[in-house]
Design a binder for these strands. Sequence first.
DNA 1: ATCTGGCACTCGGGCGTTCAGAGTGCCAAG
DNA 2: CTTGGCACTCTGAACGCCCGAGTGCCAGAT
Lengths: 344, 344
Amino acid sequence: MAGEVRQLDDRKLAVLRAIVQDYVGTEEPVGSKALVDRHNLGVSPATVRNDMAALEEEGYIHQPHTSAGRIPTDKGYRLFVDKLAEVKPMSAPERRAIRHFLDGAVDLDDVVARTVRLLAQLTRQVAVVQYPSLSRSTVRHIELVALAPAKVMLVLITNTGRVEQRLVDCPGTVGETLLADLRARVNAGAAGQRLPDVPGLLDELPALFEAADRPTVTTVLATLFETLAEQSEERIMLAGTANLTRFGHDFPLTIQPVLEALEEQVVLLRLLGETADAGMTVRIGREIAYEGLNSTSVVSVGYGSGDESVAKLGVIGPTRMDYPGTMGAVRAVARYVGQILAES
Amino acid sequence: MAGEVRQLDDRKLAVLRAIVQDYVGTEEPVGSKALVDRHNLGVSPATVRNDMAALEEEGYIHQPHTSAGRIPTDKGYRLFVDKLAEVKPMSAPERRAIRHFLDGAVDLDDVVARTVRLLAQLTRQVAVVQYPSLSRSTVRHIELVALAPAKVMLVLITNTGRVEQRLVDCPGTVGETLLADLRARVNAGAAGQRLPDVPGLLDELPALFEAADRPTVTTVLATLFETLAEQSEERIMLAGTANLTRFGHDFPLTIQPVLEALEEQVVLLRLLGETADAGMTVRIGREIAYEGLNSTSVVSVGYGSGDESVAKLGVIGPTRMDYPGTMGAVRAVARYVGQILAES
DNA sequence: ATCTGGCACTCGGGCGTTCAGAGTGCCAAG
DNA sequence: CTTGGCACTCTGAACGCCCGAGTGCCAGAT
């Protein structure tokens, strides 16, 4: 275990930290002289050069050309994030601003919309917020509405305030009494339950109805289960794409695949889905499975109304990002959204 | 009236048309020689040069530098769109592809999502689709659900399949009978009516209830009217932002304000809102009120299930776009979406 | 009156050269 | 192990050059 890290004494780590900080600030390769000038390392440039050579040897930094400064590699950022950086807490005014900004929300859509904008603004990067997921939330109410003799509108309302509706084509005419009966029984069985648990709880239901009504009951239930299970309905919202213009100098090349990725809800969902349930997840450059995002980093975290997370949110930016600041913003926003959800 | 146009005989118009077409194709200023080579105009480059000088005099084209080719101005594109170009119909295979692509949609969200992606793909530009607007559609059903003694969930279902929900805090406990009564009366009065008409039709309603119930009734109705009126809930969906990378050579400058504009739902809504109700609207460059989009053009059109439009959709691209093709795609997509909506 | 070929002129952009500055690696001395 | 010194490398900006595309204008042809 000590094998690889043995090489890196404290000063080398300090040098790496300084390189990351400077590079993030200036966006330019950083040389030995600039380093000792801007951080008081207490040693000479020559010494720093030796350390840099060692760091490069180990693959933490790299120089674009001979006689240019050094740039951190993905591995360098990784070490920085894991060992060298602290999450930077938001300042009190910032926290107040966050709270104030989120407090005006009127419904779930609005909460998510405000959150994603806020996050984009705070981090000056691209923000992604997943809607509170169906699978984690519970049923608040299920409504059945007769629209036509053989058409029923199914409306599912969750505790997170989300509403899903489906049109059900029934095999035959549906009487109002049957509908009322079904509605009562479905709600009795499902209300307050977690969505994935509902099918198991209701599978005896058709047996309680008269044979003639059973086809209708099973049809409605099938649609309900479908709605419950439907992963594809997981929605996300994003904001801050204009911040992509600050990505780098070599423009169109970097930005195009990212824009493409951002349009693929599936990609974003998988991205957020890989977030660890507890704690913050940071993925850097090549660590990201999706190719188009290989030159970006993703900072994501779960948020939720209680102590468990119902959805994820995060930020996508260049690997050269301010990790402590970004992580601080992401964590703070996630907390406040959680509180807002808990209150409503 | 003939005053200004007298200058432009048929050949000059043909030259303008050729310039637009070539410039759109090559993205480079087009000179007199290239023009006669690629279009058989039957005259010499020198003649074309004279015509170009005249066109420039009139402000239809402009040259970036002495001794460069000509580029159409906004005014030139305007003339091209109004007088020189035909909407290019989709080919039969294209139409089939459109239909096929849209036919799989399962609900309104899906229809809109598919439409916007399709449009972005067809035009290789940024597509915008507005959800069928509340104000144009009619009430299919209004559902009231008691969630807690003094909390009622209001669900509004429109004929376009859209569902809006609101939580209502009532001044006192709400009995199930009252709720059922209210539900019946509200639906009796509102079902099938256009949304903006509903408040007028229901304003006598509180008088029909007992005095004790009236506060509850008015509260619920107020929320309902709010929901009906709420313009801010008009939603849009967009796709194809990755196509922005093909905008031009002078990158970040052009793209940033556009990305910013695209994130402002308000801007996009106003943009679509300015679309004429009938026919297609093309706005070019400076004609667009919003500054950030001054170097883009917008092609938009209304779509709807019947003969009247319930919402708008459109495409945003560089002023140098293939107008006939874009207009053809926009028109075709709008038609098919209308049909899909009518069927469902 | 209109078109055309010819001609002189302009200007942008590509290309090679030069030059300064930043940064390095290495070495020998502290 | 650190440090100052030194020679070396390489990029990128600046400069000048020239080619070619394109123009405007004019005089002659139709």
